[in-house]
């Protein structure tokens, strides 16, 4: 058998073996991806007040934000206070809304995604609820955090900068 014939035979054998395997792998991957698409998500929205006065101690209820609050972006703030925390359950393409005692409303919609990454829509109203301050579509890692800085906030007891920390985790 010549060298060329050997090569041709080897190519044919390999092709005959690899094509079905590749096809099966492709179909299997698609099926797995379809299975992994999320249709529900759980979110928590935290209204947090950051103050320039304080000893830098992060309270236990905001411990999950510690890596974020210790970044350069927030290094000017030394006081941290959780004003209110709201939990939201999201269904695909259905808006869920949380109204905070300080007046702001946060709306969240699950637009899609998979086990690794979620696609969401978020909107934030003004304190009196009359106008929209922000409306955004974003994608983020599962359980990832989005911060919204809503400007200065003050009441009788406290003052500082108001932030909303939004964290969502998807479910099948």
């Amino acid at each position: 058998m010549t060298h060329r014939k050997k090569n041709r035979l080897l190519t044919t054998v390999l092709a005959a073996g690899l094509v079905p395997v590749s096809a099966f792998a492709g179909v299997f991957s698609l099926a797995m991806a379809a299975d992994a698409a999320v249709t529900k998500a759980s979110c928590q929205v935290n209204a947090v007040l950051l103050k320039k006065e304080g000893d830098g101690t992060i309270p236990p209820e905001l411990e999950f934000l510690k890596p974020t609050l210790q970044t350069e972006e927030f290094e000017n703030y030394k006081g941290y206070e959780l004003i209110e925390r709201k939990a939201l359950k999201l269904a695909l393409d259905t808006k869920s809304e949380a109204t905070f005692t300080i007046g702001h409303r946060v709306g969240l919609t699950l637009l899609g995604g998979d086990e690794a990454r979620l696609k969401l829509h978020a909107d934030l109203s003004s304190r009196d609820g009359t106008k929209s301050l922000l409306s955004t579509d974003y994608s983020i890692n599962n359980n990832g955090l989005l911060m919204i800085g809503a400007g200065a906030y003050s009441d009788e007891k406290r003052s500082g900068k108001l932030f909303f920390a939004i964290q969502c985790g998807g479910a099948g």
């Binding site: 999950f64 939990a87 922000l134 983020i140 890692n141 359980n143 964290q167």
Partner: peptide, 18 residues
């Protein structure tokens, strides 16, 4: 109920500031 968020940025697909 939520784990510590992973260090990851969000990808903003569209945004409107009021």
């Amino acid at each position: 109920s939520f784990p510590s968020p992973p260090a990851a940025e969000a990808e903003i697909h569209g945004i409107e500031f009021g």
